[in-house]
Design a binder for these strands. Structure first.
Length: 880
RNA sequence: GCCUCGGUGGUGGAAUUGGUAGACGCGCCGGACUCAAAAUCCGGUAUCGAAAGAUGUGACGGUUCGAGUCCGUCCCGAGGCACCA
């Protein structure tokens, strides 16, 4: 056994051993229960970042834990290889996205291997390869046949200078990132997936995912946003033609308070009204400026303009003015809303701004004088919010036939009356919109369509799949380079064989990642998208990834699984049984802001922190020039803030185990993790201490490998043994709930206890028995986190040939029992003292004992005891 | 703006169902070893106070014998908002 802990050498040896024994190869014909553990696959951006290390370490801990618990585990890895950054890199360096991507994959794979993850590399896939994305195209065609994909226009960000479509990320403060030009909204034809047809099932099945975090289910439910309301129409006459303007509302009970109607700038009626109203036309143009992002839309100043058109209230026939507003969304509901300023905050502010009438129609009952019911108004927020929250306190007032009706009754009555006039009905509406998948970009899956002047839109026949993306294009920022590739664009129409054009739009990269987990089950299958092996492995038992994917990726994947199910490709309803959403990795931000010019960020690695003698931070200096830098707090590691830490240097300096231990110890997986150099040093110190302790133990051992029978133990050894088993028990609980930081800390507590045991005055054989048993448990417990050192020490201490084959340890309940327990004694809930009592003491005896205690008597003073609350095994509270 | 989550010592965090707040680390202080330093080892470390004791989990209020944990209002931070992945 080596005296010094040398991670670089032993980690390579352990990894060679796992490769040679094919330790992580997953097979379908095992008699063990299957466990499919999947971490979200990385985008090959260049090199691993700390978020990746964290994500894959969490997955690996779960993989190895379940392997030792006797599961047949599949942990695969792949590459989410299409996407915008490759095009950006191409513009910067002139390298084709394909080459950049493949180079990155090669480098990052090497990095992943050096971290010792228990991955079955035989199933590796990359979404940018034709053998993968041909199935995107194949399923696209099936969905097109079923009407699950359709074509309609949708809004994009248009850069008028570069004449190109911009991603939301490329729009900064409403301007193009390269040109600085004001971005415009532009409507272009796109393909949509009809995810809304599955809205009800996607919502309902959230209940079938009890092992998903509550917050993710809540976010998805709110995203789908089912609301039951009333769709109804305001009749109007324009150019002597009677027409109807439809709106949707969840607050039909306030219909008698409507004082105006607002339509989106893109609404056909707005376009029509603008024909004879240049001022309105200008306003509508103004509304079309800016990005398509909802956050921008929601935070901009609410503006409106009257159209001069009036519509008729469907129940009172009153004349209602029609407005165009920049805050009405064309793609939700009807693109038109009724405005009730008395009972909606946004309408209220709009009405104040433009001096429109405010008519209260909901009030709280006044029992003394029903004729003086007090109106509830949005400017009385305490009451209004309370009423809105549970909808039970108020009722209709100033509402003619509906006076006195409560929320539900009013909606029923109003919907019935509207229906009788054929002007409305109750309707279920979802906030969820259909998924637009067309991208005017090069580095993605080609959409398999051909446009023929004679035949129209012609789907590419299956026999011509895949439509292969040329890999040698270099984008230059002025539109999709595919349009400049006649060899790609020009094609014979599959129907009439005349010259035709290929679609040059590619698919949203979320399409690629919506089904990759099914492909891992049968990555070598060349004849079909998936094969029956998919039903062996699905659903994924444990999925791990960043919380930032809580809605889009996870919802699209759930949708896609249901589509594949309905086509008979898989037999599960949901793809991921358990979900762990990991927190982001943060680091300090330092910068200097010059009088003029750009703010400069400095990597924390180049900054020295100054502290006072108590350790409080007093300042920060840039090491290169000794001058102060400003602290910008902490934030997610990013290029723009120059606060990333390259995992490569960490792995090279300390080795994989120390990096992994630090990641697991520093924060629980679901919380953000703050980077700290000294924390890494602490992890290194612990593993070195573990190594030398094991070395000393092995050197002084008299009976190699024997964990002999234990006779009666002296107190110190008994206590050390109790600590080991108690921590193991707690750690097993923590592993099940994925709280790995306390598992790591349990291994530290065990080593602390074993070090005291080693020094205890006791017979050598007894000490050896206790310490040997403790080390044996500790190594197995720590092995999922730091597999390399555990592998080596397990062999060096002759516990067995391969720790991976060892069973998961269970605590010995006998070791946990204590003769005496400590009770906390409180008086009126305040801790006064503690009391050592026999384990099986009766309640009456405790009460007697407590009342005789000097500290208790002093705290009682002269006041009489009202009652005594005893929590068995924990505490006593004397109430006075 | 909307949806969701979080806020505990100098610091990362712990506290299983409401039951000893601060486990285990980091940092800092003191000591041992050393010519010296690093490394390592030992001890201390919430705040105020000489002590007894009091205070303390973002703020304020409530429920309870008892609240970091439950309820209400507010403040601050993070993630998402449909073309970053």
């Amino acid at each position: 056994m080596q005296q010094k802990y040398n991670p670089q050498v032993l980690e390579r040896e352990a990894q060679n051993h796992w490769d040679a024994t094919q330790s992580f190869k997953a097979v379908e014909n095992s008699d063990k229960p299957k466990y499919y553990c999947l971490s979200m696959f990385p985008y090959p951006s260049g090199k691993l970042h700390m978020g990746h290390v964290r994500n894959y370490t969490i997955g690996d801990v779960l993989t190895r834990f379940h392997k030792m618990k006797g599961f047949n585990v599949l942990q695969p890895m792949g590459w989410d290889a299409f996407g915008l950054p490759a095009e950006n890199a191409a513009m910067a360096n002139g390298v084709p996205p394909a080459q950049w991507t493949y180079d990155n994959i090669a480098y990052m794979k090497k990095q992943l291997r050096s971290l010792g993850f228990a991955i079955d590399w035989e199933r590796e896939l990359a979404t940018c390869k034709p053998e993968y994305y041909r199935w995107n195209q194949w399923l696209f065609l099936r969905m097109l046949e079923k009407g699950l994909i359709y074509k309609k226009t949708g809004a994009v960000n248009w850069d008028p200078v570069d004449k190109t479509v911009l991603a939301n990320e490329q729009v900064i403060d409403g301007r193009g990132w390269r040109t600085g030009a004001l971005v415009e909204k532009r409507e272009i034809p796109m393909y949509y997936m009809a995810i809304t047809r599955y809205a009800e099932e996607l919502l309902g099945d959230l209940a079938a995912l009890p092992h998903w975090p509550e917050r993710v289910r809540t976010m998805q439910a709110n995203w789908i946003g089912k609301s039951v309301g009333v769709r109804f129409a305001f009749p109007y006459t324009l150019n002597k033609v009677a027409q109807k303007l439809w709106v949707f509302t969840t607050r039909a009970d306030t219909i008698m308070g409507v004082s105006f109607v607002v339509i989106a700038a893109e609404h056909p009626l707005a376009t029509q009204a603008a024909l004879s109203n240049p001022e309105l036309a200008r306003f509508i143009e103004e509304c079309k400026q800016g990005s398509i992002m909802e956050a921008d839309m929601a935070t901009m100043e609410k503006k409106g303009m009257a159209t001069g058109i009036f519509v008729q209230h469907p129940l009172t026939q009153e004349k209602i003015p029609l407005w165009v507003g920049n805050y009405v969304l064309m793609n939700y509901g009807e693109g038109a809303v009724m405005a009730v300023p008395a009972h909606d905050e946004r309408d209220f502010h709009f009405a104040l701004q433009y001096h429109l009438p405010i008519k209260p129609v909901i009030g709280i009952p006044n029992t003394a004088d029903p004729s003086a019911d007090k109106p509830l108004l949005p400017f009385d927020p305490t009451q209004w919010h309370a009423w809105y929250a549970d909808k039970i306190q108020g009722h209709c007032i100033h509402s003619g036939p509906y006076d006195g009706l409560a929320f539900d009754e009013a909606i029923e009555a109003i919907a019935k009356d509207l229906q009788a006039k054929e002007l409305g009905e109750k309707q279920v509406l979802y906030r969820l919109r259909d998924w637009g998948i067309s991208r005017q970009r090069y580095w993605g899956t080609p959409i398999p369509l051909i446009y023929c002047e004679q035949c129209g839109d012609v789907p590419v026949p299956d026999k011509d799949l895949p439509v292969v993306l040329p890999e040698d294009c270099v984008p230059d920022g002025s539109g999709n380079p595919l349009n400049k590739r006649p060899d790609f664009v020009n094609v014979a129409c599959p129907r009439c064989a005349k010259p035709a054009r290929r679609e040059t739009d590619t698919m949203d990269t979320f399409v690629d990642s919506s089904w990759y987990y099914t492909r891992f089950a049968c990555a070598d299958q060349t004849q079909s998208m998936v094969d029956p092996r998919v039903n062996h492995w699905l659903p994924v038992d444990q999925y791990i990834g960043g919380i930032e994917h809580a809605i889009l990726h996870l919802l699209y994947s759930r949708f896609w699984t249901k589509v594949m199910r309905d086509m008979g490709l898989v037999n599960v309803n949901e793809p991921f049984s358990r979900l762990l959403t990991q927190g982001m990795v943060l680091n300090e931000i330092y910068f200097r802001k010059p009088e003029s010019g750009r703010i400069a960020y400095f990597n924390p690695i180049d900054v020295d922190i100054q502290t006072d003698e108590k350790g409080n931070r007093t300042g920060a200096l840039l090491r290169s020039d000794g001058q102060p830098v400003t602290s910008g707090g902490i934030g997610t590691m990013s290029k723009s803030k120059n606060n990333g830490v390259d995992p490569q240097s960490l792995i090279e300096e300390y080795g994989a185990d120390i990096a992994r231990f630090f990641m697991m110890f520093t924060a629980p997986p679901e919380q953000t993790l703050e980077w700290s150099d000294s924390g890494v040093e602490g992890a290194a110190r612990f593993l070195r201490r573990l190594w030398s302790f094991a070395y000393e133990f092995q050197q002084g051992r008299t009976e190699p490998a024997a964990i002999s029978k234990m006779g009666p133990l002296p107190t110190e050894l008994k206590e050390a043994r109790r600590v080991c088993h108690a921590n193991l028990k707690q750690a097993n609980y923590d592993l099940e709930r994925h709280q790995f930081n306390t598992v790591a800390s349990a291994t530290m507590k065990m080593l602390n206890a074993l070090e005291s045991a080693q020094k205890a005055p006791a017979e050598q054989t007894l000490r050896e028995a206790v310490v040997g048993e403790g080390l044996n448990l500790l190594l197995r417990l720590i092995s999922p986190i730091t597999p390399h050192i555990a592998h080596q020490l397990w062999r060096d201490l002759q516990f067995g040939p391969d720790i991976l084959q060892a069973p998961w340890p269970a605590p010995d309940e006998d070791a946990l029992t204590q003769e005496e327990i400590e009770l906390v004694v409180q008086v009126n809930g305040k801790k006064r003292t503690t009391l050592k009592v026999p384990r099986d003491i009766s309640q009456a005896a405790i009460e007697q004992w407590v009342l005789k205690d000097a500290d208790v008597i002093r705290a009682l003073a002269t006041q009489p005891v009202k009652k005594i609350i005893v929590v068995p095994g924990r505490l006593v509270n004397v109430v006075i």
